[in-house]
Each structure stands twice: as structure tokens, then as C-alpha cells.
Amino acid sequence: MTTSTSVTVSPTFLDRVRGYSPPRRYLPVAATVALLIGMFGAGSLRYQGFADPQVVLNLFVDNAFLLVLGVGMTFVILTGGIDLSVGSVVALSTMIAASTLQAGWPAIATIIAVLVSGTLLGTLMGLVIHYFEVQPFIASLAVMFLARGLCYLISVESIPIREAGFTAFAQGSVPLPGGYHVTPSVVVAVVVFAIGAWVLHMTRFGRTVYAVGGSESSAHLMGLRVALVKVGVYTISGLCSALAGLLFAAYTLSGYSLHAVGMELDAIAAVVIGGTLLTGGRGLLLGTMFGVLLLGTIQTFISFDGTLSSWWTKISIGTLLLIFVVIQRLLTRRQN
């Protein structure tokens, strides 16, 4: 997939507005945004205080780790792969963080240890997928088991985090103009998102990610560095999972083997709802962000309602997933 930004004779502003049709690649994202706005509209009509900007900001606060996971997952899915290990790697990261902090490591050493181990797992997975031609699904399944197993080896019990730096980070607040505030983890997530968007949309690596997703053999014949990219995306996903694990550890201030069970499904759902094609090659990182926000909005909706039970979250995520998958299918079928 390449973008063709053809600049022709500059027409007048009015002509441009009149003849404007949004590029196809923005259509799925536009659908997500429309749905998000619709849900917020419905929420603010039904519940008092739903439309408060702080509610919007809290979407970021409560889903910072999911956004970070979504960034990594978007890279993987764009190449046509999938990473089922992210939830387990998050759990493993919280365990490593909690246990090393308990052993008296300085926070910075803990952070480095977590990031390195996550990246290493991701790289290993990428190497197995690319060089041994193991399906991404089954390779990441193995890493999923591996990471959960390692969690239990560290400890079966939940380990609390009491280190000063982590608790300060967890309880910290970043004031925004207008009396609103977010947590430091939101800042981290937004920075990760910005870096991800830059890499994906502005660098040679990012272009190659799209090319590999479009057609791996074509990309290979074009002389693109397929191996680097295929191993690279899983490395990125591993790094993002480890970072998300750190944010999750700070969010819950504990390490536990059963943290983040099924979070890989949330991450995949966010990416799909954000309009990224599961066959790879098409999608935007921006869409993933809106996908994460949409998942967050569903939860907010349910918690505002109070009468709806928590399982409606799962049912509505499944339904949304279905709708978007079907829409994607119809769109691609028409193009073919």
C-alpha cells in the first residue's frame, strides 16, 4: 500500500471543498470517530456529567496501557500477523517489576529489566515466525504460554509494589489548563503513540510495514528488508507490551500472574475497530487510538448506567468487532 498524494493544478478553495471526498483509507477511521461521537452524544443526553471533558480525559487515564498495547499490535497486524502474547507479557512485566522492586532494585534498573525482557521475547517470537515460517498465531501462542508460565515461576501470589518512585508515578497528576488533569501514564502513552505514528507514517521502516502487509513476496522482490520488518514489528510489540506492563503495574500497584487475562483480545479489538485490515497492509495508528477510546467509552457508559452489568462490556465489544469486521469485508469485496 502506498499513498498517492498527487498534487495537480491548484484549484480554488471553494472547488476543493465542493469536490472533496475523503480518501478511502480514512473511511474506516471516520466510521469509528462517528460512532465514538454518537456514543458520547447518547451518553451525555442520558446521564448527567457524561459530557464533562474530564470524562474524556479519564478514558485516556484508564486505558493508557491499552493504547500502548494497541500501538504495538497495529504494527503487527499491518504486516498481516497477529500477536496473542501481549496480555501475558503485560502480566510477566508486572511480575518482574514487582519482584525486582521487592528485592530492592532501584526503579530505573527494574524498568530497564522489564523493557529488555519484553523486547527480547518479542524478538525471539519474530525470529521464529520469520526464519522458521511458524504461523504468527501459533508462535505468539507459545510465547503467551511461556510468559504466563514464567509469571507463576516468579510467584503464584500477588506482589504489592511499595517503591516510592512507582507510587509517586501512580499517584501523580499532570494538570491541564481549565482545571483538568491526567496521570503521568497518559503522557507516556501519548508519547509512545506519537513515536509510533512517526515511525509508521514517516519512516522507511513504516512504509515497508505496509508493503509487507500488502504482499510479502512483492515486498521481497522489490528488495525491501522484509526480514528486518517482520522481526521488527514483533520486537516493537514486545517492547510496547513491556511498557504497557509497567503502566499497568503502576495503575494497579501490584504484580500478579493473573493480571491482564484476555487483554490481547481487547488490543486486537481496538485495532480492528480502529479500521485496520486484519489481512494487513491497510490501516492507521490514529484509528487504533479511536478504537481504544471507543472500548473505554463502552466501559464508561456501563459504569455511568449502573444498572447494566459488567458482562455487557464483553457482549458489546464482540458486537462492535463483528460490525467492523463485516464492514471491512464488504469494503474489500467491493474493491476486488
Partner: peptide
Amino acid sequence: VLMTAGRGLAM
């Protein structure tokens, strides 16, 4: 889709 929604349905 059913994996995600199914447990919700069971609940």
C-alpha cells in the same frame, strides 16, 4: 467475535 462476546453471553 464469539470468543469475546461468548463469555459475556454465558454470564
